[in-house]
Design a protein around this nucleic acid. Structure first.
Lengths: 125, 125, 125, 125
DNA sequence: GTGGTCTAGACCACT
DNA sequence: GTGGTCTAGACCACT
């Protein structure tokens, strides 16, 4: 997981997105523990409070469960929920991108090609 | 043009994107004037300073030219430049969206469907 | 609104409860502004971050709306929502108190008297 | 006895409350032994240190007495003391709940109904 | 001035 | 060591 410090997307949001994605991909499975607040903060070279905020959001979403003194555990049935969350934000981004492109008068051929090219550039899962 | 005040994308950026898109679509043509800072600020319910910042960015991009005392004019040959700008940001957004979805393990069928659905939801140009 | 710094209830939670209560009571009405983060922090002799956290929670509950550069506004229809929130936490506290008292074998007469006495001690609204 | 791990009330406090309630109810009688630290920790799925802290508090209150090598014994005359402790915390909770509800403008009818409903929901002693 | 995010550093409850 | 809360202080976007 990489943090882009100059992105307009807040760092804590990037962290939450990254962990959600990892849960969706099955990197962390229900019942497993995810990195501790302090550990992940060290890895990402980020303040622990920032990681804490990301984890709080994921707990509100029901993806993880916090246990004092023990750590954070991936919630049961969280994989599907995470996948849905990722798909939802994908759809939102797609819709907005395409709407903007069409508003600017880009022809369908151009947009379709952008989509295909994006596929080829993205790393395989 | 709509402003989303809670988006992580700064408002001035959203405004710049919107105007660029309008130039690309030919809504504003080379030599024509675009809305005054105050006028657009009123329309979007936004502070004039914010519009000002957006216009400064577009001027740096060469899409518009300020004429003292009269206002901002669309630069000659700006339509193609605007189109290219819009396409570029489209490609960037697509690439990032798809990369995120694949990282989360979403299968191609899901992503393709999201793309098709996004097309149907977007208003015709 | 008073903060009890040694209460086990977190300060930010006490602040959120206090503002929710004020909205429910009609002290702040829909469309009106509530004290700024910094102002309330000064009043309560508390760090601005702590107030910020309380306001974030209220925004998630839909009771208030934040506007960058302007301040926080009470949401429309928020009074009823706030009242419901207060009533819900009242019921929860009551249920727990009574359950504990009965578990300890306190007779109904004692519990009823505690309830009546509590009424007399509480200040009129 | 149930522990709510996410309650703002510290776990050791919840445990102390539970044991005090049991003594008040006569579940544990003067001279009898209460569960060992380890045993109760296992039951509640809690760390022994936490139970230890709860017992220390009860010992300070004079409700239980530690006998080296054998365990904790319920103190003589402790039943009445425990009852008084439970009643006192009941009154405190009631007073605070009602004060909060009235501050939020809830009418008496609503509060009375919450009280009656709480009675019906609580299990018989 | 106003909200939003972040760092640095501290203390608490719990394991 | 682990999560949860809080202070002090800074910078950013927006009004």
């Amino acid at each position: 997981m990489r943090i882009e410090p100059h992105s307009p997307v807040p760092i804590f949001q990037q962290i939450a997105d990254g962990v959600r994605s990892a849960v969706a991909a099955g990197v962390y499975r229900p019942g497993e523990m995810i990195p501790s607040v302090r550990q992940l903060a060290l890895n990402l070279v980020v303040n622990p409070n920032t990681v804490q905020r990301a984890y709080e959001q994921l707990e509100r979403e029901g993806l993880i469960i916090s246990r004092k003194g023990t750590g954070m555990v991936v919630a049961p049935d969280s994989k599907l929920a995470a996948r849905n969350g990722v798909e939802q934000s994908l759809r939102q981004a797609m819709t907005q991108s395409i709407a903007q492109a069409r508003a600017a008068g880009l022809p369908r051929a151009i947009i379709d090609r952008a989509y295909r090219d994006a596929w080829q550039q993205s790393p395989e899962a």
